[in-house]
Amino acid sequence: MASLFATRMPATIMSALFLLVATLVSVRSRDGAASLLLALGVAASGWRLWLLYRGRARCAAAALSRADARELERRFGASYLAFAVLFGCFAARALMLPIPSLHLPVAILVVGYAAGAVATTALRPLIAGGSVLLGVLPPVVVLAFSAEPDHAVAALCLIALLTGGLRSLTKRHLAQERQSATSSAFAVLARRDHLTGLMNRFALAEAIASFDPAGPSVGSYALHYLDLDGFKQINDRLGHAAGDALLCAVGERLTASAQRGDAVARLGGDEFVVMQVDASSSTVIAERADDIVRWLSAPYRINGKVVSVGASIGSSRSSSRACEMNSLLEEADAALRHNKLSRDQRRLWPNGYQLLARA
């Protein structure tokens, strides 16, 4: 919405200039049609400015939801096009009046309006293109059918400027689309593990920050921190390519076993984290940890060979979103190391995990 709110000052300036020129035309000509178009144009312009300033205030107060933003943009487009229709009709009417001294300020206003529409609303090509056509074509028609030769030349100039403006608008919009696509791609890459495609630490932190405490977990979630037992031996024996393929396969299993709302991330090496949103009790968390170990312990087929690895896991539970991710990961990691260092727990694998729960 930033580009939309950035049109506030140009829209304010255009509204003031329209009021000034239209008032001059109305007073000098005493034409009823011009006066009516002046009143309607001011009303449409005021509607547009009210939408922009009110929307900006709501956005600053964080009271503008996504649905509200879409509705604001729709209303803004309607107000913009409504003003364009009235502006074009007013300019055409003013050029029809037999007062040559008024034609120059009207012509300047038409050119300024078209340039401003292209410059400020280029990111919304339907609004920009529509408003330019609606605002410029009526005076072009009036000038083209005038008996004065200089009016015909002015019409040709406006047509040339209109064509150039629409071409510039198209190029700018395509360039912006390419830039947006590139930015989106980089944004995705910044939140994804380059090997497995899973979330990275940054994306996991975002998932935790957006966790809804009013969901089925009743204000709590769990983090399962795990690594693979025997991964180094497989990596050394079969090579790094096989090791990478195994990590991808592990990521696929974790993703396939994830429940709705869960998040799966790779922190690096053979270390993974599963965010469990249904953490209503220690029993539910323990059962999920047990399932994760069991899923990962089934054999894998890597480059035509069957390999098996174990998994060690530690879990921690948060009572609210306010709990910091790093502290929860430290608790889960401590539980994981406790499990790996305990020889007795190793014998009981795959059910040998330690659960640390927060009150």
Rank of each mutant, 00 (worst) to 15 (best):
A203C: 12
L204S: 07
A205D: 15
A205K: 10
E206Y: 06
A207K: 02
I208K: 06
A209I: 05
A209D: 12
A209Q: 13
A209N: 04
F211N: 12
F211R: 09
D212Q: 02
D212A: 03
G215S: 07
G215I: 10
P216A: 14
P216Q: 15
S217M: 11
S217R: 01
V218M: 12
A222K: 07
L223M: 01
H224K: 02
H224A: 12
L226K: 01
D227G: 06
D227N: 01
D229K: 00
F231Q: 05
K232E: 03
Q233G: 05
Q233K: 03
Q233P: 03
I234T: 00
I234P: 00
N235S: 09
D236C: 11
R237T: 13
R237W: 06
L238S: 01
H240T: 05
A242C: 11
A242F: 02
D244C: 05
D244R: 02
A245Y: 03
A245S: 14
A245V: 03
L247R: 02
A249H: 02
A249R: 12
R253W: 06
R253I: 14
R253T: 13
L254Q: 05
T255N: 10
A256F: 10
A256I: 10
S257Q: 14
S257W: 06
R260G: 01
G261S: 01
A265K: 10
G268T: 04
D270K: 07
D270P: 00
F272V: 06
V273A: 00
V274Y: 08
Q276T: 10
A279D: 04
A279V: 07
A279P: 04
A279F: 00
A279M: 04
S281T: 14
S281L: 02
S282K: 08
I285D: 01
E287T: 02
E287W: 08
A289I: 00
D290C: 11
D290Q: 14
D290Y: 09
V293G: 00
R294Y: 01
W295T: 15
W295D: 13
W295A: 09
L296P: 07
S297D: 15
A298V: 15
A298K: 14
A298I: 13
A298M: 15
P299M: 13
Y300I: 10
R301F: 11
R301E: 15
I302R: 02
N303D: 14
G304E: 09
K305R: 15
V306K: 02
V306I: 13
S308A: 09
G310Q: 07
G310C: 09
A311G: 07
A311T: 10
A311D: 00
S312R: 13
I313V: 15
G314T: 06
G314I: 08
S318C: 12
S318L: 10
S319K: 04
S320D: 13
S320N: 12
R321K: 14
A322H: 08
A322R: 14
A322P: 03
C323Y: 03
E324W: 06
M325W: 05
M325Q: 12
M325E: 08
N326D: 15
N326Q: 11
S327V: 11
L328C: 05
L329V: 05
L329Y: 02
E330H: 02
E331Y: 03
